[in-house]
């Protein structure tokens, strides 16, 4: 499997959802609700991404007592990576916001 170099939007959403322990179904629901249905992550993509995040130790298996609905949580490493990516995204947004503001004034 390829290593995650930069977090894609899907990976970012899933990691953001795993700041608290959640299972796959809950992650899908949270993302769909917060984005009002504009973003939905397909089950095969979701499964692939979760496996990859586990392998890279960005998340860990939090509870597998229900084998159908295993829950996952961010690791310390995962938290760091997510925090870094938030900063990267902030720069992007700031650039765009400032640009639009200057245009208006």
């Amino acid at each position: 499997m390829k290593q995650i170099e930069q977090l894609t939007d899907s990976v970012f959403y899933i990691m953001a959802a795993l700041t608290t322990p959640r299972h796959g179904y809950a992650i899908m629901n949270l993302i769909e609700e917060t984005t009002k249905g504009t973003v939905s992550i397909g089950p095969a993509s979701m499964y692939t991404i979760i496996k990859k995040l586990l392998q890279q130790e960005f998340i860990y298996l939090y509870d597998d007592s229900d084998s159908r609905r295993k829950t996952y949580l961010l690791t310390e490493k995962g938290r760091e990576v997510l925090t870094e990516d938030i900063e990267r995204r902030k720069v992007m947004i700031q650039l765009a916001e400032n640009g639009l503001k200057e245009e208006q004034s």
């Binding site: 894609t8 899907s10 939905s40 992550i41 993509s45």
Partner: peptide, 14 residues
């Protein structure tokens, strides 16, 4: 129904 793969990276891995 929305497709089972929603992003490019995971689709390539398929």
């Amino acid at each position: 129904t929305a497709p089972i793969y929603s992003d490019k990276d995971s689709k390539i891995e398929k």
